[in-house]
Simulated scan of single mutants.
Amino acid sequence: MADDQGTTGAIRTYPFDPGASVCGVGMQVGPMGAEGPWHGIGTTRRVHRIEFHVLLFFREGPVRHMVDFTEYEMQAGEILWIRPGQVHRFSRTDPYVGTALSMQPGFLPRATVEATGLYRYDRPPRLRPDAAQLAALEDSLAQLQREYLDTTTLPLSLHTTVLRHSLTALLLRVAHLAATSPESGDTAPQQGTTFTRFRDAVERGFPTNHSVSAYADDLGYSRRTLVRAVRAATGQTPKGFIDRRVILEAKRLLAHTELPVGRIGVAVGFPDAANFSKFFTQHTGTTPAAFRADQN
């Protein structure tokens, strides 16, 4: 825990660095490894969060990579999609060979974000394209990389626009692969503003707000409308959605920091340690202390 994380406090978080991008645009694409634009993160080999999207296109394997308590053994031809806020760790021993694509939140318009499912945290990080899908993805990725590196034939505004279109084309292919994956568990499209506004509000507010009615009021929806939208998008109730987000954050802090259990409870909205322990046990079947001990 502390020796892995390097701190006994919050999990280390890396923001997107536009200064590492060609022309300072809101995306980066390049080789994995020490020469890649994201080498400062990759070479840490420590548990951390990122505030942006990363897609890793593996050309060699196996490579073991942990994302939110699941270790994925990635093979050549597979893709790992790590979304903002997810806790992950690079392998300490396996070499990373392939292409890394990073994207700053806000680089793509909202309609594209919805169409590509950028924040579909319910979808599995690992994607396994078949031969035809992989060939199409490789062509699209190569085109994006050519456009990214071509800084001479267009003014910066048009260069950025072309990059957005090329990135959208690639992400639509990746999103289709994610939606049709046997591990996806999709029940219905998550497009539409009601659920996405609720999801974004929960992401901002879950450390202090666990009330469905409060979210409904803040967003200007009736409770019934919110229930219908969240159930259609995820198969869960709004309360279940909130509780799952709280539990995930609690697990992250228990496993990857040495914060006292009481402080972790406060961090996820439970000023009383006993109430936090009861909530955690109800949802996981184990106490916070036992869960932390199991991670060692």
Rank of each mutant, 00 (worst) to 15 (best):
T208K: 09
D150C: 00
D122A: 04
T208C: 04
S166E: 11
A229L: 01
R252D: 14
A34K: 10
L163K: 04
H159T: 01
D218C: 06
V266N: 13
R64T: 02
S277K: 04
R46D: 08
A135K: 07
P62Q: 02
T187F: 06
S213I: 05
G185H: 01
L226I: 03
G61L: 08
E71Q: 08
L259A: 06
A214V: 12
R173V: 04
A267N: 04
G26S: 08
E114R: 14
A232I: 00
F69G: 04
T286D: 08
T234A: 06
G192H: 01
R199F: 12
E183A: 08
Y14K: 00
R12H: 14
D294Y: 13
D3A: 07
Q133R: 12
D3Q: 06
H256F: 15
P18W: 00
R199H: 06
R146A: 15
T257Q: 07
A233Y: 01
P84R: 02
T281F: 11
D4E: 14
P155N: 09
L144Q: 12
G40F: 10
S91I: 11
D186F: 03
G192V: 00
D68H: 00
S213D: 11
D17G: 01
M103R: 08
G42C: 05
H53M: 13
A229N: 01
I264N: 02
I50Q: 10
H210A: 15
V29A: 04
D122M: 03
V261T: 15
D186A: 12
E114V: 10
G19Q: 13
H210D: 12
R110P: 05
Q145R: 12
A10N: 10
E73I: 10
L127V: 03
V25G: 06
S211R: 12
A267W: 10
G30N: 12
V261K: 06
F241Y: 14
L144R: 11
T70D: 13
A169M: 09
D150N: 10
H65C: 06
T284R: 10
R92K: 11
R197L: 08
P182V: 03
R110D: 15
I11S: 05
F16W: 03
A142V: 09
H165L: 14
R64D: 07
D243P: 07
G24M: 07
A214T: 15
A100E: 12
S181Y: 10
Q190E: 09
L149G: 05
T187S: 05
T168M: 14
